[in-house]
Computed example of a mutant assay.
Amino acid sequence: MIPCRGRVEVGPLRLERGGELPQVELAFETWGRWDPQRKNAVLICHALTGDAHVAAHDPQDRPGWWEAAVGPGKPIDTRRWFVLCSNVLGGCYGSTGPASPVTSGDPSSRWGGRFPTITVRDMVHAQRRLLDALGIDRLALVVGGSLGGMQALEWAVTYPDRVEAAAVLAAPPAASPHAIAWNEVQRQAIFTDPAWQGGDYPPDRPPRRGLALARMLAMTTYRGRDEWEARFGRDEVPPGTDPVAARAGDYATAPRPGVPAEFFRFQIESYLHYQGEKLVRRFDAATYVTLTRAMDLHDVGRGRGGLKGAAERVRARVYVLSISSDLLYPVEEQRRLVRALRRAGKDVTWHVWRAPWGHDSFLVDGAGVARRVMEWLDEPGAAAAGPREGAAVAVGEGRP
């Protein structure tokens, strides 16, 4: 019996960029019952600031980040599927990362700024060891969005014999210079915070302002222009009604000298400050640096003869979701992946979703996205070619 929560030591891990982590531990959660005969295991991979808590385990449990998608009677129905999600290597929610102790049992020996450079491929290697430890030798589906989609793609290429189907949501075959540039600006916001101290800050005195500013910058790439126009426009926050603004100096850009924070602020500004403040309360700055760098290094064709060589390794059926309003990983980037898979003769279905919420649409309408993925999973061979070049197919209307 596989527990619904746990941590597994997967041993030392030699890293793609050089060096080795002497001991790696991964935190995980599961839902449903694994049936080795039915091969019903679904691996869900989380995005940048996510964790292993995809959904609540009971009515008293807190909701998960894909709550509407996973559970009894939901699109990924845990009465049928055994669902597993692990906190990624480099994370800060129980898995080995910069916030972890270098020496087991000694919390004062944090990795901090000494944590080595890792890649998405390293994350997948660590996940494979986790599955080995749990006795799971094959996945019916691996699915994820953004950083999670990078992992899903790496799984299909790195371990083709262990994956029957992969759903790559809002993720490219390789990080573009544009995406790398945005991540670098975010990291510099953290580095310029005096509290950063090269990543070796005390846990109770992290670079709060730098991390909040990094998150504010990131949000400008995560959401859609049309959504913000409809949601905020040029509306201002009534003076004295913005609790975030009053604390802005502690988290992000300080108010102008002599001018109260609530004197003048657009609603979109208040929203960004709120997002920055919220992340600071739950996430580690050095982890943010580590994982954004791993996203920058993502290139599924590295060392494999490019994208063409990577595509030829795939044996799984592949579902690719593009989001029409995605500013971070635009449709053209997934188009390159789909073309490479088709030219290699692979079974690939591609959908372009006309969603207004930008890159985060797969989180905003998790149920709609998961429903389409599971419908595709149940229809092997049906319309495998997907839309013709240049066509766009709406996956669903979703919900605001």
Rank of each mutant, 00 (worst) to 15 (best):
G6I: 04
G11M: 07
L13A: 02
G18T: 01
G19C: 02
L21N: 04
L21R: 03
L26N: 05
G32K: 07
D35P: 07
K39C: 10
L43Y: 11
H46T: 11
A55M: 07
H57T: 09
P59M: 11
Q60M: 07
D61R: 07
P63W: 05
W65E: 02
K74N: 00
T78P: 09
W81N: 01
L84G: 03
S86K: 06
V88I: 12
L89Q: 08
A99D: 14
G105M: 00
S108K: 07
S109H: 02
G112C: 13
G113I: 02
T117V: 12
R128E: 14
R128D: 14
L131M: 15
I136S: 00
D137Q: 11
D137F: 02
L139V: 04
L139S: 01
L147Q: 11
L153M: 14
Y159I: 00
R162I: 06
A167S: 14
A171I: 09
P172C: 08
P172Q: 06
A174V: 05
P177I: 07
V185P: 03
I190Y: 03
F191I: 03
G199W: 04
R205T: 13
R205A: 14
R209L: 06
A212N: 01
A212K: 03
L217I: 12
T221G: 13
R223P: 01
R225F: 13
D226Q: 13
D226R: 15
A230T: 09
G233S: 10
R234Q: 14
R234D: 15
D235R: 15
P238S: 09
G240W: 14
T241L: 10
T241R: 12
A246T: 09
G249T: 06
G249Q: 08
T253M: 11
G258W: 10
A261R: 06
R265Q: 15
Q267V: 12
H273Y: 13
Y274I: 01
R281K: 12
D284E: 12
V289L: 10
T290Q: 08
R293W: 04
M295T: 10
D296Y: 04
G309P: 04
R317P: 05
S325Y: 05
S325F: 01
Y329G: 06
P330I: 05
P330K: 03
E332Q: 14
Q334D: 10
V338N: 05
R342P: 01
D347W: 04
A355P: 00
P356N: 02
G358V: 04
H359I: 08
S361R: 02
L377E: 09
A383V: 11
G386A: 09
G386D: 08
G386V: 07
G390W: 07
A391R: 08
A394Q: 08
